[in-house]
């Protein structure tokens, strides 16, 4: 299995082009996405702790609730995004007369999470080291929370984590392109467009969230 996962990362074309297509089974993609969800939960734990420091003292007493909510939200969001990525690929590939079930697309989307798990672990390690030194301005009113959050997102470590996310998203996109090619029976060009459109939109969203367009 380890060699298979390495093949996904290094040579996705060979992995998805195997006959019979063992990758159709959802067990391994589901485990990969679950691992991603766990790492996302850990990241949410740190991020929520950081954001809680912004909040007024009367809100900070609900830190425990905020942590549980943040972790749960991050894990559920990872699972939902898995389905959304697969849905986007499935719908867009319909334009190119793509064939193949949504289940196959879902499996491909799950394998694409493998580099994102690696990226999330690296980001988590960096975040773990640098988050104690992040300056969190005191917030007295709700109006100031937006400004404080924006300031937080502009911290160098936050930008670095976002950049890492983009790098690993490119890697994931590469896997998705070859996977969708086989899952939906598309040409490499059409598969690239199918994957490229939502990925490009997501990249724009990530850059926007960093406040580059602000």
């Amino acid at each position: 299995m380890a060699s298979s996962l390495l093949t996904v990362l290094v040579n996705p074309n060979a992995f998805f082009g195997r006959d019979p297509p063992e990758w159709e089974a959802l067990r391994i993609p589901a485990l990969i996405v679950l691992a991603a969800a766990l790492v996302a939960g850990a990241t949410a734990f740190l991020t929520t702790g950081l954001v809680a420091r912004i909040m007024p003292p009367d809100v900070q007493q609900y830190l425990g609730v905020m942590l549980v909510f943040g972790i749960a939200l991050a894990m559920v969001a990872t699972l939902v995004f898995w389905a959304l990525w697969a849905g986007a690929f499935f719908v867009i590939s319909l334009v190119f007369q793509g064939k193949g079930s949504y289940r196959r697309t879902l499996a491909v989307a799950g394998y694409g999470y493998l580099p994102m798990v690696i990226g999330s672990v690296v980001s988590l390690a960096i975040f773990w080291v640098f988050s104690p030194g992040i300056h969190v301005p005191a917030v007295a009113s709700v109006e100031e929370i937006q400004a404080a959050t924006t300031a937080l997102m502009h911290q160098p470590v936050m930008i670095l984590v976002s950049i890492l996310g983009m790098i690993f998203l490119f890697w994931a996109a590469n896997i998705w392109i070859f996977g969708i090619r086989y899952a939906r029976g598309l040409s490499l060009r059409n598969a690239a467009i199918t994957v490229g459109v939502p990925v490009f939109l997501y990249l724009i969203f990530m850059v926007w969230s960093l406040g580059v367009f602000a």
Binding site: V122, I126, G133, I134, H135, F168, F170
Partner: peptide
Amino acid sequence: LAEQASEPSRFITLLVWMLVIVV
């Protein structure tokens, strides 16, 4: 100082560039 505190070191920056190249 806060930016300094969260400023990644040269090593981290180098690591990111290596990741870019590898990917």
